[in-house]
């Protein structure tokens, strides 16, 4: 089925700005679902609030657009209510890691079978360009005009430390890899985190002179490398892409360990 057959066409074209990376993530997610062969009625998409969270409205699955930061909590209820359904949670970096940080680490700790796709554009886009927990130190936002003082999270390390059993990172430039990683994340039985470095040319790009969507994607191409690549010996600043954690564990149930 073509990608657009998974969309609620009357809401397109979408609201995302020209050059925004979120549409690439949405398209990759659809391709992953198509590849796995899931029926539309078998998929629930639960989102929070922010640019990325508008994705739920476009997708022709069971969809839920919830509260800022709380998507994983709502999704936990959906998954425990219907464990047979595939529950995917598209989130932004502010949504997932600032206001939703507590729910994020606890979903990871439980290792509940949800797929969190975190579009990391390092900024709050919907409200006009404020700094997020993923804005690197020194970079500008409308609330940090002299550069942000706070250090950013390393999302991969955070997810690993909190106990997620599948953790991956890719970018919108690496579109084939993106689809493959989301596919693996959905197939994985446990809490799966896919960090997708996505571009916000309108706010993050403009305030930090990183250029338009094309230039920002060139940045993802030039400043990332596969896990274990020799390139990092010469350039340790390169951000690693790939699957960092992929562990088979018993599937979580709140019933816990049952005596035989």
């Amino acid at each position: 089925m073509p990608v657009k057959d998974y969309l609620r066409l009357r809401f397109l074209p979408h609201i995302w700005c020209p050059g925004c990376g979120h549409g690439i993530v949405m398209s990759g997610m659809i391709r992953a679902i198509e590849e796995i062969g899931l029926e539309k009625n078998e998929v629930v998409v639960v989102s929070g609030i922010g640019c990325s969270s508008r994705m739920a409205g476009y997708l022709d699955f069971h969809t839920m657009h919830t509260l800022h930061g709380r998507a994983l909590a709502f999704a936990t209820g959906v998954k425990l209510g219907r464990p047979d359904l595939t529950v995917i949670v598209p989130m932004g970096d502010g949504d997932a890691l600032a206001i939703g940080g507590n729910h994020f680490i606890h979903a990871a700790r439980r290792d509940i079978d949800l797929t969190a796709v975190i579009m990391n554009n390092r900024i709050y886009g919907m409200t006009g360009g404020q700094g997020s927990p993923m804005t690197p130190q020194g970079m500008r936002s409308t609330t940090a005009p002299r550069g942000i003082a706070d250090a950013a999270f390393d999302l991969v390390e955070l997810a690993k430390g909190a106990g997620a059993s599948f953790v991956a990172r890719t970018t919108t430039f690496h579109a084939t890899e993106l689809t493959r990683m989301i596919e693996k994340a959905i197939r994985h039985k446990g809490f799966s985190v896919v960090e997708v470095m996505s571009q916000c040319p309108t706010y993050y790009g403009r305030q930090n002179r990183l250029g338009n969507g094309v230039e920002m994607m060139k940045g993802f191409r030039d400043n990332t490398t596969s896990i274990g690549s020799k390139k990092r010996e010469a350039r340790p600043d390169l951000i690693e892409r790939g699957i960092f954690v992929d562990e088979d564990r018993p599937v979580y149930s709140p019933e816990g360990l049952k005596a035989d």
Binding site: L7, P13, W16, G23, S27, T176, M217
Partner: peptide, 11 residues
């Protein structure tokens, strides 16, 4: 081009 189109406009 289709994979990277953010607008789902290329097929």
């Amino acid at each position: 081009c289709e994979l990277r189109c953010p607008d789902i406009a290329i097929e």
